[in-house]
Structure formats: structure tokens, C-alpha cells
Nucleic acid binder design. Structure first.
Lengths: 145, 145
DNA sequence: GCAGTCACTATCATTTTGCAAGTGACCCAC
DNA sequence: GTGGGTCACTTGCAAAATGATAGTGACTGC
């Protein structure tokens, strides 16, 4: 597993997971997306211990996925907003959600609807070149050098 | 954060992360996909401690993402294979890889090529209903009950 | 001045991770 | 037939991360 300290590995998945490889980080991202941008909202929404939330928030900010913004000087109040990198990660969360629904989806679940059509979103990962879902065509792995 | 013990949450992302919410699990999946199916291959490929690998493998098997199969009775030798659920998770890893390449992609990286066209795969998450990339159209969140 | 909210930090127990060494089943060479 | 060597782990213990609980500082509103 690559870390910032040792030599970066050659695998882009590892590179991604380096930045948000843990569960709380992803759940924080999900909650910010649905509008829970303030510390107390996130803490109560997630049921996370305050020290852990603080650490996750600074790690996510350090990794460039969120940024802290002061929206009130007095009283001093901050909110956490997604950066472009953070917003770009949201589709992956939707894909994880679709997978979770399929394989662990017992009971009532929340879902995303297309605002225009009202239909439930069905996230699928495709190859932008062919338009085909990943897994439907044979691939090969190429290593650098 | 939902666990198996407490009441299952309403969020499908959480449901997904419940099964493979950690970094090693995803990297194990990635390595199995690229053909490292045996214990020693995974251990040396990942640089993971043997006790941790054992625990991850049993957790992944318990979660139904991989299964252990004996391919030789004498000497007793096992390999780990992806189940349907495990294979279904691979597109998500590709999406994470694409994100990692975009935001943490310095240096040489491995990549997947379409076997037929030879072109580098560009994973994108779309809504199967509209064909539009997630994030390009406004969505709303619907809660159960 | 006093309660209450928000956004934390500090302290400490518990849990998870990681390293190193060891074990059991076997195979192959001498 | 004993002495390595490989594979697939387990065990024991140290280090790091996580989590529960309590406390702090900056306010606001009464």
C-alpha cells in the first residue's frame, strides 16, 4: 500500500485510495453533498465521535476534497464545502450505493431521483470510448516502462 | 455508520461500505482481478502482513465478495476467486482508479486497455436511464417512508 | 450574569493494524 | 530418510488508529 512517505505505486486505484481510503471520509463526503455542511450537522448525522470527525475533516481538507469556509465572523462559524476533486468523487459514491443496494439492500433505502424525469438514478460505470459497461468487454492491463 | 449489529441505516452507500469499507479489501480485490489469486502472491504483491491478509480474506469471503477454492489436495493449496458480487465491484475500482489518476496521478501509472481497440479505458459513471454522466444533471434525494 | 449552542480539543480505554517469529503440511534432492 | 525449501498460514506482542466522555472558548439571547 502506497503512502505519501514511500515511493508512489504504479496503481491508480491505490492513488485514489490514498486520499480517501476509509469509510468515514466517504460518508462525510456523502453527507456534505446532501447539505450537511456544518460540524454539528455532520457529527449528529453520522453519529461520529467529535475527535474523529475533526481528524477526518482535516484529512479531507489536506487531501483537497473539501475546504473549510467561514460563513460568519461573529460568532465564528465554519462550513465545509466540496472542492472540484470532492465533487468528482460523488459519482463513485453513487456507484458504491448502487452496489450496496444490489448486494446489501434489504429494507427501506434512500435513493437519488433525476430532478427532471423523476426516475430513480441507475449508476453504471462505462468506458467513455466505447460506451460499453465496464466488464462487458475484455480488457488488458498495461504496466509502465 | 451502520454495522451488522445495529439497525441498518437507510443509505445504500453505507450498505456498500459495510462490506468493503477499507483500503486493503479493495486492493485485494484489485489484485485478485489481475490474477494474483494465491495467498503468497497477494501477500508479496501487496506488501501486507500475513495476519492482516488472512483477516481481510476471511472478511471478504464472509461478505460474499470472494471465495476460497482448493485447487490441489496434496499439497493442500487454495486460491481465492471473485464471486459475482466481487466482480460487480470491479467497475467501481476502475472509477476510483480514474479519479486517482486525475487527482494524484504524478509519475508512471498502469492502465487498462480495451482488448479489441487497444485504447485506454476511460471509466465514467453514468445514469443508465438518461445516459448522462452523474453530476451533469440535477438530482434530488428521496428518503423512505 | 447565566443557560444554551456551536465547534471543537484533551484524555484515556478499546480496537485494529502491523511486524516478526514460528508452525504444519507437503515436495524434492541428496 | 533427513535437510532444505515453499506455501499457507497462526501466535504474540508493540504501535497506531478509533471511539467514548468530558471539558473548553467564543459567542448569543434573555
Amino acid at each position: 500500500m502506497a503512502t505519501d512517505e514511500n515511493i508512489l505505486g504504479t496503481c491508480p486505484v491505490d492513488r485514489g485510495l490514498m486520499r480517501i481510503g476509509d469509510r468515514w471520509s466517504m460518508l462525510v463526503l456523502r453527507d456534505i453533498e446532501r447539505g450537511l455542511t456544518r460540524y454539528e450537522q455532520l457529527r449528529t448525522g453520522l453519529g461520529i465521535a467529535p475527535n474523529i470527525l475533526s481528524r477526518r475533516l482535516s484529512a479531507l481538507a489536506e487531501a483537497g476534497l473539501i475546504e473549510k469556509r467561514r460563513y460568519s465572523a461573529r460568532p465564528p462559524r465554519d462550513e465545509y464545502l466540496l472542492t472540484d476533486a470532492g465533487r468528482d468523487f460523488l459519482p463513485i459514491l453513487m456507484a458504491i450505493g448502487a452496489w450496496g443496494r444490489k448486494y446489501n439492500g434489504a429494507g427501506a433505502l434512500s435513493r437519488h431521483l433525476d430532478a427532471a424525469t423523476g426516475e430513480a438514478v441507475r449508476p453504471v460505470v462505462i468506458d467513455a470510448n466505447t460506451g460499453a459497461p465496464i466488464g462487458s468487454r475484455p480488457l488488458k492491463l498495461e504496466y509502465p516502462e
